[in-house]
Design a protein around this nucleic acid. Structure first.
Length: 557
DNA sequence: CTGTTAATAT
DNA sequence: TATATTAACA
């Protein structure tokens, strides 16, 4: 069937001699194409009859490297059948018609590209790319996931080839399609000497969610720019091939990369029954909607056929796009776990999101957290500040509440509810709420920390703390000897502050106190004004601390 | 190894 | 700028 990477690297004048199967019922068109191809030293086998072509492919698949198949309104099915039959043969579909769905279907069924007729020489000239792509793609697979080696070998191979100065297509690069050559070429360039390939730890997880990355750019766009809308389509695509081990990922340009992205779109479009896909066919079915659950189970989705082609799609780097849904899961997980357990790995588990890595989660977690904190508190957090060191702030028996950080500006919810976080009794349902966009900047201040009491106060990322929890204050007063938090605070906020006043867990109090002590500059949620410096100093001295430790701008440990 | 964090990249 | 990824560290 197709040649291997090795074959190619050993191929003399590479594209020359490439055997092209041409199937076009329009003999004129066929002849034209053929002559063009031959002018480029391709070896063309023309078929005007599908059956013949099919049998040829079936009987001697090794005879062709690439196929160009015309699809017309009349031979639709036949063409598709060809795709099905010649899965291993990189097949370029071509047609006079270019309805998006047809194109998509072709791609979905495994076509490497869809070209609109007439086929320009440039387009024809570059069909070899698909052969290369396939070859290396396969190579990558063989090499298993030892990406690096695979990658490198690929590079080296290509380099050999390239550097030998292949006269082939002087202009290939300007093709619409990503030029494989270039892509690859520039990869190692940064320093062919420096091999230290970027380790991609996250790949290890195997399945990865991927986002469209940039592949779609190359897509069948080659057909025309007109495919603007299509972009939209493919955008929302995803490859839920789940378990599929992340093979490849080699930064190798994917000439027809489209595939990956198109798949889903097509699936929906073509035969709609894509199982889960439908589910999220919602508006924001953004990019990576790797569904939590076994998305893997159906590698052979769309039509059962081309499946092999599909899952073959290689994922690239793919960044994790923390969409709402994703974040929702995240938060949910965190909530479920509780502060003390909200560690990346667990969160990850709970999220059950394919392809997410601990790192991703950790990073997300940390960054959000940190971010907020930083935002709220001045950098200088003098560690030496007199504070009882309650190290056991670790776990509150209660569940922490985490809301959604105001990131991804698209806060979906107008925070009507005061409890946009989970576990918040008032609105248990509003799980996926985000913090209110417009809450006063200082509000989140203390709302950052885990909520000390369930159902008590909003206390989470970006959560508007509508009611200054009196509890805070009382707790505060009780322990924070150093601060004058008049115990007379009002309880006007009809909150169940009592619960707190009863007998807050020490840890909680400690935590609060600690917090307050640590960050005296923070506006108190109580509407009280922060203690004046003088006051603090005075208190300190009263406690035997005569001088305030020098400020060492926190940052450095 | 895992979680944190800082540094970087996009 | 914001946010994601990498790398380094504890």
């Amino acid at each position: 069937m197709v040649c291997t990477a090795n074959d190619i690297s050993a191929w003399k004048d590479f594209p020359k001699g490439l055997r092209v199967l041409l199937l076009d019922e329009d003999s004129n068109s066929a002849a034209e194409i053929k002559s063009k191809l031959e002018a480029m030293d391709y070896i063309v086998y023309t078929f005007c009859n599908q059956n013949e072509a099919l049998s040829a492919v079936s009987s001697r698949p090794e005879s062709f490297h690439v196929a160009i198949v015309e699809v017309s309104t009349s031979n639709n099915n036949g063409s598709f059948k060809f795709l099905e039959t010649a899965k291993d043969l990189p097949t370029v579909m071509t047609s006079n018609i270019h309805c998006i769905s047809t194109m998509m279907k072709c791609i979905a069924l495994g076509a490497v590209e869809f070209l609109r007729k007439p086929l320009s020489e440039d387009k024809l000239r570059n069909i070899w790319q698909h052969v290369v792509h396939k070859a290396f793609n396969a190579a990558g697979k063989d090499l298993s996931e030892s990406l690096k080696p695979g990658k490198e070998s690929v590079f080296s191979m290509l380099h050999l080839q390239m550097e030998n100065g292949i006269p082939m297509n002087e202009d290939s690069d300007k093709t619409e399609d990503a030029s494989v050559v270039h892509e690859i070429d520039r990869e190692p360039s940064p320093g062919s000497d420096k091999y230290p390939a970027p380790s991609t730890p996250q790949l290890k997880q195997g399945e990865r969610l991927l986002d469209d990355g940039d592949c779609q750019e190359h897509t069948n766009c080659s057909t025309e720019k007109e495919s603007g809308e299509q972009d939209g389509e493919s955008k929302s695509v995803e490859t839920t091939s789940g378990n599929a081990i992340a093979e490849v990922t080699a930064p190798i340009g994917q000439p027809q990369g489209s595939r990956v992205s198109d798949v889903k779109g097509v699936a929906d479009l073509v035969d709609g029954n894509k199982g889960e896909s439908t589910v999220h066919s919602h508006p924001q079915n953004r990019v990576n909607r790797k569904d939590s659950q076994a998305s893997a189970e159906k590698p052979s989705t769309v039509s059962g056929l081309h499946s092999s082609c599909l899952n073959k799609a290689n994922r690239k780097k793919l960044k994790v796009d923390w969409t709402h849904e994703l974040h929702k899961k995240f938060v949910q997980a965190v909530d479920q776990l509780g502060v003390d357990q909200a560690i990346p790995s667990r969160i990850l588990e709970l999220m059950k999101v394919e392809g997410l890595t601990r790192h991703n989660v950790a990073s997300h977690l940390q960054q959000k957290y940190r971010m907020h904190r930083r935002h709220i508190l001045p950098k200088e957090d003098d560690p030496r500040w007199p504070q009882r060191d309650q190290t056991q702030r670790s776990c509150y028996p209660h569940k922490p509440i985490m809301a959604f950080p105001p990131y991804h500006s698209n806060h979906v919810v107008p925070v009507g509810p005061l409890y946009p976080m989970w576990g918040a009794p008032p609105h248990p349902a509003n799980i996926q709420m985000w913090g209110s966009p417009g809450y006063p900047p200082w509000q989140p201040t203390e709302s950052w920390h885990w909520k000390p009491y369930p159902g008590f106060q909003a206390d989470a990322w970006g959560c508007p703390v509508m009611h200054p929890p009196p509890g805070y204050c009382s707790a505060f007063t009780q322990n924070a000897s150093g601060f004058h938090c008049s115990s007379t605070m009002d309880n006007r906020s009809g909150m169940p502050h009592n619960s707190v006043e009863h007998q807050p867990a020490e840890e909680v109090i400690d935590k609060v106190v600690k917090e307050a002590i640590n960050k005296p500059w923070l506006p108190l949620p109580l509407g009280l004004k922060p203690p004046s410096t003088e006051g603090v100093l005075a208190e300190l001295s009263r406690q035997g601390i005569s001088a305030v430790p020098p400020h060492i701008n926190g940052s450095n440990p």
